[in-house]
């Protein structure tokens, strides 16, 4: 087995596009769940808003890619308002039900045959990254090569901008959370009625949080499709599993912690690639008999192993990597 190759695959994924757009979406989810206590199970829906907002404005309306990003963000803001207005006055679980359904509805609507001329139906949309790639600065033309890992020039530009956005997002979250606004957010998470009794408008703050976290979800979707070069309304791209992977990444890092979603996404992507390539090589080198698993089954097997790993984490470090065990103990009260 070539351990050097396994580790370079793992590190490449840990710093690659999946980790980057997971981090963006997970920052949003952390604002929703970690700081406000909103159960958003439809982060993939916000990603759809961002991805399709970008692709449609470029392909259909010939707009600049930066305007496309703004369109995607606006679309996700509207989506957040639509979800929030009826549900945020109700108990937390209603938002969970509505978001999980709305995200799937949105995905099924954009793949409708009758919208083929607009959203591309089940084929999705291609060829909207040219303008974005034209804007690539010269120093990335040769791609990024760190010796043991390397990224192509196209990928480098997405990664460069994406990771900068992640850092800005973390900084932005820091400023907000360490402010009186952030304090109200956390108070609403702990007990809405207590916040109301002290004169805080819980509904309004929850709405602001839902919109803000949704914008990060949209950014995740935007950078995802910029890296992929196409938008496709498939379950593995924008379905419910995607939402749950983002949840996993956030919980892995530590819910309600500033760097939790970023580190969680990096580790999630790295581990997934590590188990995948390690298994593949083990199977190829006959360390694992073909009668147990073959090369085709590795794809499923890596998720089983990842799931086992998560179970172990939840048993020995339930607060996540960055979490504070004291906080978890308080939940018992």
């Amino acid at each position: 087995m070539d351990w050097g190759q396994i580790f370079s695959f793992a590190i490449e994924s840990a710093l690659g596009t999946q980790a980057m757009y997971f981090a963006l979406a997970a920052i949003g989810l952390n604002i929703h769940f970690g700081y406000t206590g909103l159960l958003n199970f439809g982060q993939a829906g916000f990603m759809i808003c961002g991805a399709y907002g970008l692709a449609i404005s470029i392909v259909e309306y010939d707009l600049h890619w930066l305007i496309g990003i703004v369109v995607g963000l606006i679309a996700s803001g509207i989506f957040a308002l639509l979800l929030g207005i009826p549900t945020l006055r109700l108990r937390a679980d209603y938002l969970a039900i509505v978001t999980i359904a709305a995200a799937e509805i949105l995905r099924i609507v954009v793949r409708a045959t009758s919208l083929r001329g607009f959203t591309g139906g089940s084929n999705g949309i291609n060829g909207f990254t040219a303008g974005f790639q034209d804007a690539r600065p010269g120093f990335l033309d040769g791609g990024i090569d760190l010796g043991f890992i390397s990224f192509s020039s196209r990928q480098s530009w997405v990664l460069f901008l994406g990771w900068i956005t992640v850092l800005l997002g973390v900084g932005f979250t820091y400023l907000l959370i360490h402010s009186p606004w952030g304090r109200v957010l956390k108070a609403v998470r702990e007990d809405e009625d207590a916040a109301r009794a002290l004169g805080k408008n819980a509904y309004s703050v929850k709405m602001q949080s839902l919109v803000l976290g949704g914008l990060f979800g949209a950014l995740g979707g935007i950078f995802f499709v910029l890296a992929q070069g196409s938008v496709q309304p498939t379950p593995q791209d924008f379905g419910t599993p995607k939402t749950f992977f983002i949840w996993v990444a956030m919980i892995l890092g530590g819910t309600g912690k500033l760097w939790g979603p970023v580190i969680g996404s990096v580790i999630f992507s790295g581990l997934l690639a590590f188990t995948d390539s390690a298994l593949r090589q083990a199977v190829a080198a006959d360390y694992v008999p073909k009668s147990i698993i073959d090369g085709v089954q590795v794809g499923q097997m890596r998720f089983i192993l990842l799931g086992l790993g998560l179970m172990v984490l939840m048993i020995y470090r339930p607060q996540g990597i960055f979490g504070d065990k004291r906080e978890l103990a308080l939940d018992a009260n």
Binding site: L176, S179, P180, W181, G182, V184, A187, G199, L212
Partner: peptide, 18 residues
């Protein structure tokens, strides 16, 4: 601190500018 009324930092945009 949460109890204090009329906090200007509870506005989303002002919250960003410490």
């Amino acid at each position: 601190k949460l109890g204090a009324p009329n906090q200007s930092g509870e506005n989303f945009f002002r919250a960003l500018v410490h």
